[in-house]
Design a protein around this nucleic acid. Sequence first.
DNA 1: CATGAATGAGATTTCATTCAT
DNA 2: TATGAATGAAATCTCATTCAT
Lengths: 197, 197, 197, 197
Amino acid sequence: MARPRNEVRRLAILSAATHVIASQGIGAASTAVIAKGAGVSNGSLFTYFDTKTQLLNELYVELKSEMAQAATADLPPHATAREQVRHMWRHWARWATDNPAKRRVLAQLQVADEITAESHQQVAAASASIADLLERARVGGPVQDAALGFVLTLANALAEAAIDEMIRDPEHAAANADTAFEALWRVLAGAIPPTDT
Amino acid sequence: MARPRNEVRRLAILSAATHVIASQGIGAASTAVIAKGAGVSNGSLFTYFDTKTQLLNELYVELKSEMAQAATADLPPHATAREQVRHMWRHWARWATDNPAKRRVLAQLQVADEITAESHQQVAAASASIADLLERARVGGPVQDAALGFVLTLANALAEAAIDEMIRDPEHAAANADTAFEALWRVLAGAIPPTDT
Amino acid sequence: MARPRNEVRRLAILSAATHVIASQGIGAASTAVIAKGAGVSNGSLFTYFDTKTQLLNELYVELKSEMAQAATADLPPHATAREQVRHMWRHWARWATDNPAKRRVLAQLQVADEITAESHQQVAAASASIADLLERARVGGPVQDAALGFVLTLANALAEAAIDEMIRDPEHAAANADTAFEALWRVLAGAIPPTDT
Amino acid sequence: MARPRNEVRRLAILSAATHVIASQGIGAASTAVIAKGAGVSNGSLFTYFDTKTQLLNELYVELKSEMAQAATADLPPHATAREQVRHMWRHWARWATDNPAKRRVLAQLQVADEITAESHQQVAAASASIADLLERARVGGPVQDAALGFVLTLANALAEAAIDEMIRDPEHAAANADTAFEALWRVLAGAIPPTDT
DNA sequence: CATGAATGAGATTTCATTCAT
DNA sequence: TATGAATGAAATCTCATTCAT
């Protein structure tokens, strides 16, 4: 079954999957429900995705890539590392708060057994520019000798936790975002520069 | 008296569930497989747990409580906050690396839709001493004004990420453990004392 | 398993079965539920009744016999057939309205597949005095040449329908009882005597 | 268009259910057995009926409607009430003796707990012309002041009992049919016209 | 004899996937 | 290519009956 040309339908299916998983949980996301949500027949879904597992994997890669892209968009090229990390962090947090459903889905897919090692690798590749930035930011800091993967995991965990809290308590979102950024930066660079917004 | 309800069997079922979920994922953990793994008949499982959901919830609470208890065992009462956090962190990490299967299960159950709000509350109660310690540790630090829940989430995410990495790369586990603790401490207290192990 | 001596328990089980079936339907009457209703252990039930089918059959015979006995109690020996039938009918209706649960159970058991032919025969034997009375009453009437079983079935159906209605609409129970008796009598004897009551 | 939902298959399932219930009782009528009897896969049954309960309810309504329609087919419009009731009675009896399996099923479903109040209402609506006829027939008779529901119940019980007997003893079916009709008529109208047949 | 845990054969229902139309 | 009916394996849970205590 070659990939068909009607990209719109494919996206409709992925979108429906997102909404179903976000609102009802991954357990309720049967192919029938997803197809209906996409306004597509049950059987049609399988001309766009060979298996349900494949659908889930593609969704995972797509969402994670979108998030990575949002995080690193418009990075000011000549700013300091701290400025760049702060920029990234803001965009990351904005994408997350703007797309709570996608975030919820990502959280579920991240630990789902159906996601293959290959997908995780693809995601890592798509997150390369985030990795690059963190690599630069940690130079001279306390985690400079750790494995980069470890630092990435740490940073990601921190960010996820912060965003979770921001979504849960929108009123203090701004303050928490700042606090979280400072925490992230302390982990990376260990110190706080004298002045900065 | 009839055959008494056998606590050993109940634990065997929970243990079987742990092993199945850890090795095959939560999707493969049917009651049939769990029962067989426990050397128990399919029907018998349901004399120990009314529903599969209940089994999962009890397993979650049990594992998380065990972890919390391991983390806060033998806390030196008169040590500094930093010493206490370090102590907790070491025990936590040791439990996690000693029980990788339980860790994997916990990671899966934490985001499973079957886990009820009540179970999450029970877990929070069981983790009270961890919360207390972090509450003391952050005094005067950069996150002292954030919601405690937020700090807990942050610390937990950090620890989980670190332990993930330690399990993934056992050779550098010790070094990573130290790095992670320093990161955790910086998040909590913001500064590094001049001397300490 | 010989019949045990503790008749009280046996009756408690039958009574519990009656209440469960009457209120929840025969589908909800598992041996566990019946046993609990009788304040008896699950296993114990099987020392009083070899199988669930046997329990149901004994219950059926018991209830039907009780009803037949109630219907023909204190039959005035020298009264006319009409007087006797009326007497029987009144007692029958009273028993039914006084024991609505038992009635409902009887209605369910009558058509249950578990009731054996033998039980139906036993019931017929227990209803012999009703049969005798009807046999006498129909002499000279329009159904005098039909099979007696047929007449019995007819009379029973009529009575059941009437009692159903009396239970459903208690306010007009008395009037309906009279109407039903007249109907019954017309079926049996075909004519209404000039004066009576 | 996909394969269209096949009415033939739906009827095959209902028919299989009828045969199983008639010969083995409602207790033996598992969806697996019914599906196999219909030459249909287990899962397929559920594309025609959402639940087993629904299947049973539809079967009940369908059979009862068929019976009511058979009973009131070709009613001579200008005949006397007695003629019309006799006509109805004959058709009713013929349908019943021609379809003994359906009859047995109806008897079982009538008292099954799975049949909903709504189904009973639908059945009542489908039996409206029978009710109309009885309403006309009882005018001036001894049950003219009773609730119509009561009269319907009575008539139905009488008919059912008679048909039971006719099926049980086919040799005397014709004679019993006549006897039963006279009984029915006496209940309704109280008197027997001088000449007829 | 009483108890209630143990058993395992079903029962109903869901669902990814296939395939006739 | 789109549709949705068809499939049957699997999943959860129930229950009559047995049997260790």
